[in-house]
Amino acid sequence: MTETSGRVAACLPIRSDTDLAWVRQHVRQAAAEVGFGLVEQTKLITAASELARNTLVHGGGGQVESVFLDHGRARGLRLTFTDEGPGIPDVERALTDGYTSGGGLGLGLGGARRLVHEFSIDTSPGHGTSVTVVCWVGVPPRPREEAR
């Protein structure tokens, strides 16, 4: 019955591999502030690193926005990676382990999805890509029916 409210923590550009380090650094600070344990922090930073690299390598650069979430007794962090690149023609395939178009191990998208609690992707060929991930501290809020 609790609405999720959010507060924007930062919006960072992703234009070079130095920016990737900034993103990891920022996510580390934000995750510590939210109160994530060490393992959850590591997972979230790693997921952010994968997604930021996707934004840089496949999307030709873009940005990441981080938002602190407050959902009653659950606290979380939401990261949204946006680029204006070529988009992903086949999302299902891109999420499959081993699929790669950038010379990596092909674990970026699918792997990042396994490291977070919520994962959504919005893309269409020619219109860029936006990937949103959410991690909650402790128990993720159960989706509950609103009373009205």
Partner: peptide, 13 residues
């Protein structure tokens, strides 16, 4: 009442 219930859930968690 709602607040008290969610505080209870927190303790259970």
């Amino acid at each position: 009442m709602e607040t008290a219930l969610s505080a209870g859930e927190e303790i259970i968690d």
